[in-house]
Nucleic acid binder design. Structure first.
Lengths: 227, 227
DNA sequence: AAACTATTGACCACTCCGGTCAATCATGCT
DNA sequence: AGCATGATTGACCGGAGTGGTCAATAGTTT
Protein backbone atom coordinates (compact mmCIF):
# COMPACT_ATOMS: atom_id res chain seq x y z
CA UNK A 1 0.00 0.00 0.00
CA UNK A 2 0.94 3.67 -0.10
CA UNK A 3 2.14 6.52 2.09
CA UNK A 4 -0.65 7.28 4.55
CA UNK A 5 -2.21 3.85 4.48
CA UNK A 6 0.93 2.06 5.60
CA UNK A 7 0.64 3.48 9.10
CA UNK A 8 -2.90 2.47 9.96
CA UNK A 9 -3.77 -0.53 12.07
CA UNK A 10 -3.09 -3.62 9.90
CA UNK A 11 -6.22 -5.44 10.99
CA UNK A 12 -8.40 -2.52 9.93
CA UNK A 13 -6.37 -2.03 6.78
CA UNK A 14 -6.93 -5.62 5.69
CA UNK A 15 -10.64 -5.23 6.42
CA UNK A 16 -10.76 -2.25 4.07
CA UNK A 17 -8.61 -3.94 1.42
CA UNK A 18 -10.72 -7.07 1.41
CA UNK A 19 -13.97 -5.12 1.29
CA UNK A 20 -12.70 -3.05 -1.61
CA UNK A 21 -11.35 -6.05 -3.49
CA UNK A 22 -14.67 -7.82 -3.13
CA UNK A 23 -16.60 -4.81 -4.40
CA UNK A 24 -14.34 -4.24 -7.40
CA UNK A 25 -14.30 -7.98 -8.08
CA UNK A 26 -18.10 -8.05 -8.17
CA UNK A 27 -18.71 -4.94 -10.24
CA UNK A 28 -16.92 -2.96 -12.92
CA UNK A 29 -15.43 0.32 -11.72
CA UNK A 30 -18.43 2.52 -12.52
CA UNK A 31 -20.91 0.29 -10.71
CA UNK A 32 -18.70 -0.42 -7.71
CA UNK A 33 -19.96 1.61 -4.75
CA UNK A 34 -17.82 3.29 -2.10
CA UNK A 35 -20.87 3.10 0.18
CA UNK A 36 -20.85 -0.69 -0.03
CA UNK A 37 -17.13 -0.76 0.71
CA UNK A 38 -17.37 1.31 3.87
CA UNK A 39 -20.32 -0.77 5.06
CA UNK A 40 -18.46 -4.02 4.50
CA UNK A 41 -15.29 -2.65 6.06
CA UNK A 42 -17.17 -1.21 9.03
CA UNK A 43 -15.77 2.31 8.75
CA UNK A 44 -17.25 5.68 7.96
CA UNK A 45 -17.35 7.17 4.55
CA UNK A 46 -15.25 10.14 5.55
CA UNK A 47 -12.44 7.90 6.72
CA UNK A 48 -12.23 6.07 3.42
CA UNK A 49 -11.83 9.32 1.53
CA UNK A 50 -9.43 10.57 4.18
CA UNK A 51 -7.20 7.57 3.45
CA UNK A 52 -7.48 7.33 -0.32
CA UNK A 53 -8.51 10.79 -1.51
CA UNK A 54 -10.88 9.57 -4.21
CA UNK A 55 -12.46 6.42 -5.62
CA UNK A 56 -10.05 6.48 -8.54
CA UNK A 57 -6.98 6.76 -6.29
CA UNK A 58 -8.27 3.92 -4.11
CA UNK A 59 -8.73 1.75 -7.19
CA UNK A 60 -5.19 2.40 -8.37
CA UNK A 61 -3.71 1.84 -4.94
CA UNK A 62 -5.54 -1.48 -4.78
CA UNK A 63 -4.24 -2.56 -8.17
CA UNK A 64 -0.68 -1.75 -7.13
CA UNK A 65 -1.11 -3.73 -3.93
CA UNK A 66 -2.69 -6.76 -5.60
CA UNK A 67 -0.17 -7.00 -8.42
CA UNK A 68 2.74 -6.67 -6.04
CA UNK A 69 1.30 -9.23 -3.64
CA UNK A 70 0.66 -11.73 -6.39
CA UNK A 71 4.08 -11.30 -7.93
CA UNK A 72 5.86 -11.80 -4.63
CA UNK A 73 3.73 -14.79 -3.68
CA UNK A 74 4.39 -16.61 -6.92
CA UNK A 75 8.07 -15.83 -7.39
CA UNK A 76 9.07 -16.46 -3.80
CA UNK A 77 6.99 -19.48 -2.85
CA UNK A 78 7.73 -21.62 -5.86
CA UNK A 79 10.64 -24.07 -5.75
CA UNK A 80 12.44 -23.15 -8.95
CA UNK A 81 14.71 -26.17 -8.70
CA UNK A 82 11.78 -28.53 -9.19
CA UNK A 83 12.39 -30.30 -12.50
CA UNK A 84 9.07 -32.13 -12.83
CA UNK A 85 6.53 -29.99 -14.69
CA UNK A 86 3.57 -31.59 -12.96
CA UNK A 87 5.00 -31.04 -9.51
CA UNK A 88 5.80 -27.45 -10.49
CA UNK A 89 2.22 -26.84 -11.58
CA UNK A 90 0.93 -28.56 -8.47
CA UNK A 91 2.95 -26.05 -6.45
CA UNK A 92 1.58 -23.13 -8.45
CA UNK A 93 -1.97 -24.34 -7.94
CA UNK A 94 -1.37 -24.80 -4.22
CA UNK A 95 -0.01 -21.26 -3.95
CA UNK A 96 -3.06 -19.95 -5.77
CA UNK A 97 -5.29 -21.87 -3.39
CA UNK A 98 -3.56 -20.29 -0.38
CA UNK A 99 -3.88 -16.81 -1.87
CA UNK A 100 -7.56 -17.42 -2.51
CA UNK A 101 -8.04 -18.41 1.09
CA UNK A 102 -6.55 -15.13 2.39
CA UNK A 103 -8.06 -12.89 -0.29
CA UNK A 104 -11.04 -14.81 -1.66
CA UNK A 105 -11.81 -12.36 -4.45
CA UNK A 106 -8.32 -11.39 -5.54
CA UNK A 107 -8.31 -13.41 -8.76
CA UNK A 108 -11.74 -12.16 -9.78
CA UNK A 109 -10.52 -8.65 -9.08
CA UNK A 110 -7.51 -9.08 -11.35
CA UNK A 111 -9.72 -10.56 -14.04
CA UNK A 112 -11.97 -7.50 -13.83
CA UNK A 113 -9.00 -5.15 -14.09
CA UNK A 114 -8.00 -6.77 -17.35
CA UNK A 115 -11.56 -6.93 -18.71
CA UNK A 116 -12.22 -3.34 -17.69
CA UNK A 117 -9.32 -2.20 -19.83
CA UNK A 118 -10.79 -4.17 -22.73
CA UNK A 119 -7.74 -6.35 -22.97
CA UNK A 120 -8.40 -9.49 -24.97
CA UNK A 121 -5.10 -11.28 -25.11
CA UNK A 122 -2.61 -12.65 -22.62
CA UNK A 123 0.03 -10.44 -24.21
CA UNK A 124 -2.17 -7.40 -23.60
CA UNK A 125 -2.42 -8.37 -19.94
CA UNK A 126 1.34 -8.68 -19.71
CA UNK A 127 1.66 -5.14 -21.09
CA UNK A 128 -0.65 -3.91 -18.34
CA UNK A 129 1.42 -5.65 -15.70
CA UNK A 130 4.56 -4.08 -17.07
CA UNK A 131 3.09 -0.65 -16.37
CA UNK A 132 3.49 -1.62 -12.75
CA UNK A 133 7.07 -2.73 -13.24
CA UNK A 134 6.32 -6.43 -12.85
CA UNK A 135 7.42 -8.84 -15.53
CA UNK A 136 4.66 -11.43 -15.26
CA UNK A 137 5.50 -12.58 -18.76
CA UNK A 138 8.86 -13.83 -17.54
CA UNK A 139 7.30 -15.48 -14.49
CA UNK A 140 4.73 -17.16 -16.68
CA UNK A 141 7.42 -18.43 -19.03
CA UNK A 142 9.58 -19.59 -16.14
CA UNK A 143 6.64 -21.45 -14.65
CA UNK A 144 6.50 -23.82 -17.59
CA UNK A 145 10.17 -23.98 -18.60
CA UNK A 146 12.74 -23.05 -15.95
CA UNK A 147 14.74 -26.17 -15.02
CA UNK A 148 11.94 -28.37 -16.36
CA UNK A 149 12.73 -31.80 -17.75
CA UNK A 150 10.41 -32.71 -20.61
CA UNK A 151 11.94 -36.10 -21.35
CA UNK A 152 9.35 -38.05 -19.40
CA UNK A 153 6.49 -37.19 -21.75
CA UNK A 154 5.19 -40.22 -23.61
CA UNK A 155 4.70 -38.48 -26.95
CA UNK A 156 7.22 -35.70 -27.66
CA UNK A 157 5.08 -34.55 -30.60
CA UNK A 158 2.18 -33.44 -28.41
CA UNK A 159 3.95 -31.90 -25.42
CA UNK A 160 2.56 -28.43 -26.13
CA UNK A 161 -1.01 -29.70 -26.29
CA UNK A 162 -0.53 -31.87 -23.23
CA UNK A 163 0.61 -28.85 -21.25
CA UNK A 164 -2.42 -26.88 -22.46
CA UNK A 165 -4.70 -29.65 -21.27
CA UNK A 166 -3.02 -29.86 -17.88
CA UNK A 167 -3.08 -26.09 -17.48
CA UNK A 168 -6.78 -25.88 -18.36
CA UNK A 169 -7.61 -28.69 -15.96
CA UNK A 170 -5.74 -27.20 -13.04
CA UNK A 171 -7.15 -23.72 -13.64
CA UNK A 172 -10.71 -24.97 -13.81
CA UNK A 173 -10.10 -27.23 -10.84
CA UNK A 174 -8.82 -24.24 -8.89
CA UNK A 175 -11.89 -22.21 -9.82
CA UNK A 176 -14.22 -24.95 -8.65
CA UNK A 177 -12.38 -25.16 -5.36
CA UNK A 178 -12.59 -21.39 -4.98
CA UNK A 179 -16.37 -21.51 -5.15
CA UNK A 180 -16.44 -24.08 -2.38
CA UNK A 181 -14.16 -21.82 -0.28
CA UNK A 182 -16.46 -18.86 -0.14
CA UNK A 183 -18.67 -19.28 2.91
CA UNK A 184 -16.48 -21.82 4.66
CA UNK A 185 -16.07 -22.58 8.34
CA UNK A 186 -13.41 -25.15 9.20
CA UNK A 187 -10.92 -23.87 6.67
CA UNK A 188 -7.58 -25.34 7.67
CA UNK A 189 -8.55 -29.02 7.80
CA UNK A 190 -10.54 -28.64 4.64
CA UNK A 191 -7.53 -27.08 3.02
CA UNK A 192 -5.30 -30.06 3.76
CA UNK A 193 -7.89 -32.38 2.32
CA UNK A 194 -7.95 -30.28 -0.83
CA UNK A 195 -4.18 -30.39 -1.20
CA UNK A 196 -4.29 -34.18 -0.98
CA UNK A 197 -6.96 -34.23 -3.66
CA UNK A 198 -4.84 -31.95 -5.84
CA UNK A 199 -1.84 -34.26 -5.42
CA UNK A 200 -4.00 -37.19 -6.41
CA UNK A 201 -5.23 -35.56 -9.61
CA UNK A 202 -1.70 -34.55 -10.54
CA UNK A 203 -0.72 -38.18 -10.10
CA UNK A 204 -3.40 -39.26 -12.55
CA UNK A 205 -2.16 -36.67 -15.03
CA UNK A 206 1.38 -37.96 -14.75
CA UNK A 207 0.16 -41.44 -15.46
CA UNK A 208 -1.69 -40.17 -18.50
CA UNK A 209 1.02 -38.07 -20.09
CA UNK A 210 4.30 -39.63 -18.96
CA UNK A 211 5.86 -42.83 -20.25
CA UNK A 212 4.78 -45.67 -18.06
CA UNK A 213 7.25 -46.39 -15.25
CA UNK A 214 7.90 -49.76 -13.60
CA UNK A 215 5.56 -50.42 -10.66
CA UNK A 216 6.07 -48.28 -7.52
CA UNK A 217 6.57 -44.95 -9.25
CA UNK A 218 5.32 -41.61 -7.99
CA UNK A 219 2.11 -41.58 -10.00
CA UNK A 220 1.04 -44.97 -8.80
CA UNK A 221 1.84 -43.99 -5.22
CA UNK A 222 -0.29 -40.89 -5.29
CA UNK A 223 -3.09 -42.86 -6.88
CA UNK A 224 -3.22 -44.92 -3.74
CA UNK A 225 -4.21 -41.77 -1.83
CA UNK A 226 -7.51 -40.31 -0.77
CA UNK A 227 -10.47 -39.20 -2.81
CA UNK B 1 -40.76 -16.58 -25.57
CA UNK B 2 -44.21 -15.77 -24.26
CA UNK B 3 -47.65 -14.70 -25.47
CA UNK B 4 -47.31 -11.17 -26.87
CA UNK B 5 -43.66 -11.47 -27.72
CA UNK B 6 -44.11 -14.43 -30.03
CA UNK B 7 -45.85 -12.32 -32.65
CA UNK B 8 -43.32 -9.56 -33.10
CA UNK B 9 -40.84 -9.42 -35.94
CA UNK B 10 -38.24 -12.16 -35.21
CA UNK B 11 -35.28 -10.03 -36.25
CA UNK B 12 -36.27 -7.31 -33.81
CA UNK B 13 -37.13 -9.87 -31.15
CA UNK B 14 -33.65 -11.41 -31.35
CA UNK B 15 -32.11 -7.96 -31.14
CA UNK B 16 -34.00 -7.34 -27.91
CA UNK B 17 -33.22 -10.79 -26.51
CA UNK B 18 -29.53 -10.49 -27.22
CA UNK B 19 -29.34 -7.00 -25.78
CA UNK B 20 -31.12 -8.12 -22.62
CA UNK B 21 -29.02 -11.25 -22.26
CA UNK B 22 -25.86 -9.21 -22.58
CA UNK B 23 -27.00 -6.72 -19.96
CA UNK B 24 -28.07 -9.37 -17.46
CA UNK B 25 -24.89 -11.33 -18.18
CA UNK B 26 -22.76 -8.29 -17.39
CA UNK B 27 -24.54 -7.12 -14.26
CA UNK B 28 -26.58 -8.64 -11.45
CA UNK B 29 -30.31 -7.96 -11.67
CA UNK B 30 -30.30 -4.79 -9.55
CA UNK B 31 -27.51 -3.14 -11.53
CA UNK B 32 -28.76 -4.18 -14.97
CA UNK B 33 -30.33 -1.19 -16.69
CA UNK B 34 -33.40 -1.22 -18.91
CA UNK B 35 -32.08 1.99 -20.47
CA UNK B 36 -28.96 0.18 -21.64
CA UNK B 37 -31.06 -2.63 -23.07
CA UNK B 38 -33.27 -0.38 -25.17
CA UNK B 39 -30.23 1.52 -26.42
CA UNK B 40 -28.47 -1.68 -27.45
CA UNK B 41 -31.63 -3.10 -29.00
CA UNK B 42 -32.40 0.14 -30.81
CA UNK B 43 -35.98 0.46 -29.59
CA UNK B 44 -37.76 2.95 -27.40
CA UNK B 45 -38.22 2.50 -23.70
CA UNK B 46 -41.99 2.47 -23.96
CA UNK B 47 -41.92 -0.43 -26.37
CA UNK B 48 -39.85 -2.60 -24.08
CA UNK B 49 -42.33 -2.12 -21.26
CA UNK B 50 -45.20 -2.59 -23.66
CA UNK B 51 -43.81 -6.04 -24.51
CA UNK B 52 -42.68 -7.23 -21.09
CA UNK B 53 -44.68 -5.24 -18.57
CA UNK B 54 -41.85 -4.82 -16.09
CA UNK B 55 -38.15 -5.45 -15.63
CA UNK B 56 -38.89 -8.44 -13.40
CA UNK B 57 -41.23 -10.03 -15.96
CA UNK B 58 -38.68 -9.47 -18.70
CA UNK B 59 -36.03 -11.17 -16.58
CA UNK B 60 -38.23 -14.20 -15.96
CA UNK B 61 -39.27 -14.45 -19.58
CA UNK B 62 -35.61 -14.39 -20.55
CA UNK B 63 -34.74 -17.15 -18.10
CA UNK B 64 -37.52 -19.34 -19.44
CA UNK B 65 -36.35 -18.74 -23.00
CA UNK B 66 -32.69 -19.40 -22.26
CA UNK B 67 -33.26 -22.58 -20.27
CA UNK B 68 -35.57 -23.96 -22.90
CA UNK B 69 -33.23 -23.09 -25.73
CA UNK B 70 -30.27 -24.67 -24.00
CA UNK B 71 -32.16 -27.81 -23.12
CA UNK B 72 -33.40 -28.30 -26.66
CA UNK B 73 -30.00 -27.59 -28.20
CA UNK B 74 -28.21 -30.11 -26.03
CA UNK B 75 -30.74 -32.92 -26.05
CA UNK B 76 -31.52 -32.72 -29.77
CA UNK B 77 -28.14 -32.02 -31.31
CA UNK B 78 -26.17 -34.68 -29.52
CA UNK B 79 -25.77 -38.11 -31.12
CA UNK B 80 -26.83 -40.33 -28.22
CA UNK B 81 -25.66 -43.46 -30.03
CA UNK B 82 -22.05 -42.32 -29.85
CA UNK B 83 -20.26 -44.81 -27.61
CA UNK B 84 -16.90 -43.04 -27.31
CA UNK B 85 -16.88 -40.69 -24.33
CA UNK B 86 -14.32 -38.37 -25.88
CA UNK B 87 -16.26 -38.02 -29.10
CA UNK B 88 -19.41 -37.43 -27.07
CA UNK B 89 -17.75 -34.63 -25.12
CA UNK B 90 -16.30 -33.21 -28.31
CA UNK B 91 -19.85 -33.01 -29.63
CA UNK B 92 -21.07 -31.30 -26.47
CA UNK B 93 -18.27 -28.76 -26.66
CA UNK B 94 -18.98 -28.12 -30.32
CA UNK B 95 -22.66 -27.53 -29.56
CA UNK B 96 -21.71 -25.11 -26.81
CA UNK B 97 -19.43 -23.28 -29.23
CA UNK B 98 -22.27 -22.92 -31.72
CA UNK B 99 -24.63 -21.62 -29.05
CA UNK B 100 -22.00 -19.11 -27.96
CA UNK B 101 -21.70 -17.88 -31.50
CA UNK B 102 -25.43 -17.17 -31.81
CA UNK B 103 -25.89 -15.88 -28.25
CA UNK B 104 -22.43 -14.80 -27.12
CA UNK B 105 -23.45 -14.06 -23.54
CA UNK B 106 -25.89 -16.88 -22.88
CA UNK B 107 -23.58 -18.94 -20.68
CA UNK B 108 -22.53 -15.94 -18.63
CA UNK B 109 -26.19 -15.10 -18.23
CA UNK B 110 -26.99 -18.57 -16.90
CA UNK B 111 -24.03 -18.40 -14.55
CA UNK B 112 -25.35 -15.10 -13.21
CA UNK B 113 -28.81 -16.54 -12.68
CA UNK B 114 -27.36 -19.27 -10.51
CA UNK B 115 -25.00 -16.94 -8.64
CA UNK B 116 -27.77 -14.41 -8.12
CA UNK B 117 -29.82 -17.03 -6.32
CA UNK B 118 -26.81 -17.75 -4.13
CA UNK B 119 -26.64 -21.32 -5.32
CA UNK B 120 -23.29 -22.89 -4.58
CA UNK B 121 -23.60 -26.48 -5.72
CA UNK B 122 -24.39 -28.26 -8.94
CA UNK B 123 -27.29 -29.97 -7.18
CA UNK B 124 -28.68 -26.57 -6.22
CA UNK B 125 -28.52 -25.50 -9.84
CA UNK B 126 -30.38 -28.64 -10.89
CA UNK B 127 -33.12 -27.78 -8.40
CA UNK B 128 -33.45 -24.36 -10.00
CA UNK B 129 -33.71 -25.87 -13.46
CA UNK B 130 -36.40 -28.23 -12.28
CA UNK B 131 -38.53 -25.23 -11.35
CA UNK B 132 -38.71 -24.67 -15.08
CA UNK B 133 -39.63 -28.28 -15.76
CA UNK B 134 -36.30 -29.19 -17.31
CA UNK B 135 -34.38 -32.17 -15.98
CA UNK B 136 -30.83 -30.99 -16.61
CA UNK B 137 -29.65 -33.47 -14.02
CA UNK B 138 -30.69 -36.32 -16.27
CA UNK B 139 -29.15 -34.69 -19.33
CA UNK B 140 -25.92 -34.15 -17.44
CA UNK B 141 -25.87 -37.77 -16.32
CA UNK B 142 -26.70 -39.01 -19.81
CA UNK B 143 -23.90 -36.92 -21.24
CA UNK B 144 -21.30 -38.94 -19.43
CA UNK B 145 -22.93 -42.35 -19.31
CA UNK B 146 -25.62 -43.08 -21.90
CA UNK B 147 -24.37 -45.78 -24.28
CA UNK B 148 -20.80 -44.98 -23.30
CA UNK B 149 -18.12 -47.67 -23.48
CA UNK B 150 -15.54 -47.24 -20.76
CA UNK B 151 -13.45 -50.28 -21.65
CA UNK B 152 -10.87 -48.34 -23.62
CA UNK B 153 -9.52 -46.49 -20.60
CA UNK B 154 -5.97 -47.45 -19.76
CA UNK B 155 -6.41 -47.52 -15.98
CA UNK B 156 -9.89 -48.58 -14.84
CA UNK B 157 -9.09 -47.40 -11.31
CA UNK B 158 -8.87 -43.73 -12.29
CA UNK B 159 -11.69 -43.38 -14.79
CA UNK B 160 -13.62 -40.95 -12.60
CA UNK B 161 -10.62 -38.68 -12.19
CA UNK B 162 -9.75 -38.91 -15.85
CA UNK B 163 -13.23 -37.76 -16.77
CA UNK B 164 -12.95 -34.85 -14.33
CA UNK B 165 -9.70 -33.81 -15.96
CA UNK B 166 -11.14 -34.02 -19.46
CA UNK B 167 -14.27 -32.15 -18.41
CA UNK B 168 -12.25 -29.35 -16.78
CA UNK B 169 -10.00 -29.05 -19.82
CA UNK B 170 -12.83 -28.85 -22.30
CA UNK B 171 -14.78 -26.35 -20.20
CA UNK B 172 -11.79 -24.06 -19.78
CA UNK B 173 -10.90 -24.49 -23.43
CA UNK B 174 -14.42 -23.47 -24.36
CA UNK B 175 -14.23 -20.40 -22.14
CA UNK B 176 -10.98 -19.30 -23.72
CA UNK B 177 -12.48 -19.70 -27.16
CA UNK B 178 -15.52 -17.69 -26.10
CA UNK B 179 -13.34 -14.72 -25.21
CA UNK B 180 -11.78 -14.80 -28.66
CA UNK B 181 -15.29 -14.89 -30.20
CA UNK B 182 -16.46 -11.61 -28.78
CA UNK B 183 -15.53 -8.86 -31.23
CA UNK B 184 -15.00 -11.15 -34.18
CA UNK B 185 -15.26 -10.44 -37.87
CA UNK B 186 -14.88 -13.46 -40.12
CA UNK B 187 -16.77 -15.82 -37.87
CA UNK B 188 -17.60 -18.82 -40.01
CA UNK B 189 -14.11 -19.67 -41.27
CA UNK B 190 -12.69 -19.05 -37.85
CA UNK B 191 -15.27 -21.40 -36.44
CA UNK B 192 -14.21 -24.28 -38.68
CA UNK B 193 -10.62 -23.75 -37.67
CA UNK B 194 -11.67 -23.93 -34.04
CA UNK B 195 -13.54 -27.18 -34.53
CA UNK B 196 -10.44 -28.71 -36.10
CA UNK B 197 -8.40 -27.55 -33.12
CA UNK B 198 -10.96 -29.06 -30.76
CA UNK B 199 -10.78 -32.38 -32.59
CA UNK B 200 -7.01 -32.30 -32.34
CA UNK B 201 -7.02 -31.76 -28.59
CA UNK B 202 -9.56 -34.51 -28.10
CA UNK B 203 -7.21 -36.79 -30.03
CA UNK B 204 -4.39 -35.98 -27.65
CA UNK B 205 -6.66 -36.74 -24.71
CA UNK B 206 -7.58 -40.10 -26.16
CA UNK B 207 -3.94 -40.93 -26.56
CA UNK B 208 -3.33 -39.96 -22.95
CA UNK B 209 -6.18 -41.81 -21.30
CA UNK B 210 -6.93 -44.77 -23.57
CA UNK B 211 -4.90 -47.94 -23.91
CA UNK B 212 -2.50 -47.52 -26.76
CA UNK B 213 -3.85 -48.82 -30.07
CA UNK B 214 -1.85 -50.24 -32.98
CA UNK B 215 -0.70 -47.57 -35.46
CA UNK B 216 -3.40 -45.90 -37.61
CA UNK B 217 -5.99 -45.50 -34.87
CA UNK B 218 -8.34 -42.55 -34.52
CA UNK B 219 -6.16 -40.62 -32.09
CA UNK B 220 -3.10 -40.79 -34.28
CA UNK B 221 -5.15 -39.69 -37.27
CA UNK B 222 -6.49 -36.60 -35.59
CA UNK B 223 -3.00 -35.78 -34.38
CA UNK B 224 -1.97 -35.45 -37.98
CA UNK B 225 -4.41 -32.53 -38.32
CA UNK B 226 -4.02 -28.78 -38.04
CA UNK B 227 -2.80 -26.65 -35.14
C1' DA C 1 -60.62 10.02 -43.72
C1' DA C 2 -61.46 7.34 -40.03
C1' DA C 3 -60.16 3.76 -37.02
C1' DC C 4 -56.80 1.14 -35.05
C1' DT C 5 -52.35 -0.50 -33.59
C1' DA C 6 -47.33 0.01 -32.99
C1' DT C 7 -44.03 2.97 -31.31
C1' DT C 8 -41.98 7.01 -29.32
C1' DG C 9 -39.40 9.78 -25.75
C1' DA C 10 -40.17 13.51 -22.49
C1' DC C 11 -41.27 13.18 -17.97
C1' DC C 12 -41.94 11.54 -13.02
C1' DA C 13 -40.62 10.50 -8.27
C1' DC C 14 -37.08 8.23 -6.32
C1' DT C 15 -32.65 6.02 -5.08
C1' DC C 16 -28.01 6.08 -5.01
C1' DC C 17 -23.70 8.11 -6.36
C1' DG C 18 -18.86 10.29 -5.12
C1' DG C 19 -17.30 13.63 -2.29
C1' DT C 20 -17.33 17.37 1.61
C1' DC C 21 -16.79 19.19 6.13
C1' DA C 22 -18.15 20.89 10.62
C1' DA C 23 -18.62 18.29 14.65
C1' DT C 24 -17.20 14.78 17.75
C1' DC C 25 -14.16 11.44 19.91
C1' DA C 26 -9.72 9.61 21.71
C1' DT C 27 -5.38 10.35 23.21
C1' DG C 28 -1.44 12.14 25.40
C1' DC C 29 0.90 16.33 27.24
C1' DT C 30 1.57 19.92 30.54
C1' DA D 1 -7.68 19.86 34.94
C1' DG D 2 -7.57 21.76 30.67
C1' DC D 3 -5.80 21.88 26.22
C1' DA D 4 -4.06 20.54 21.73
C1' DT D 5 -3.88 17.36 18.14
C1' DG D 6 -5.06 13.98 15.07
C1' DA D 7 -8.48 10.19 14.02
C1' DT D 8 -13.12 9.39 12.86
C1' DT D 9 -17.93 10.28 12.05
C1' DG D 10 -22.28 10.77 9.30
C1' DA D 11 -25.55 14.25 7.74
C1' DC D 12 -25.56 16.55 3.69
C1' DC D 13 -24.82 18.17 -1.34
C1' DG D 14 -25.77 18.44 -6.41
C1' DG D 15 -26.01 15.41 -9.98
C1' DA D 16 -26.70 11.12 -12.50
C1' DG D 17 -29.37 7.26 -13.38
C1' DT D 18 -33.37 4.28 -12.08
C1' DG D 19 -37.97 1.67 -13.41
C1' DG D 20 -42.05 2.94 -15.13
C1' DT D 21 -45.93 6.07 -17.40
C1' DC D 22 -48.64 8.04 -20.94
C1' DA D 23 -50.18 11.53 -24.14
C1' DA D 24 -48.66 12.18 -28.67
C1' DT D 25 -47.20 10.51 -33.08
C1' DA D 26 -46.36 7.37 -37.06
C1' DG D 27 -47.89 3.62 -39.83
C1' DT D 28 -51.19 0.65 -41.66
C1' DT D 29 -55.75 -1.11 -42.87
C1' DT D 30 -60.46 -0.36 -43.79
Amino acid sequence: MDDVIRNIDPEKRDRIVNAAIEEFASFPYDKASTNHIVEKAGISKGLLFHYFGSKQEMYETLIRFVFGYMYTAITEKIDWDESDLFDRLEQVTAVKMRISRTYPHMFDFMKNIVLNKRIGSLEGAFELYKEFGLDFEQVYKDMYTRNIDYSRFRDPATITESIDIVRWSLEKYGEELLLSFREDTDIETDFNRLEASLKHYVGVMKQAFYTQQPAGDAAAESNAQAR
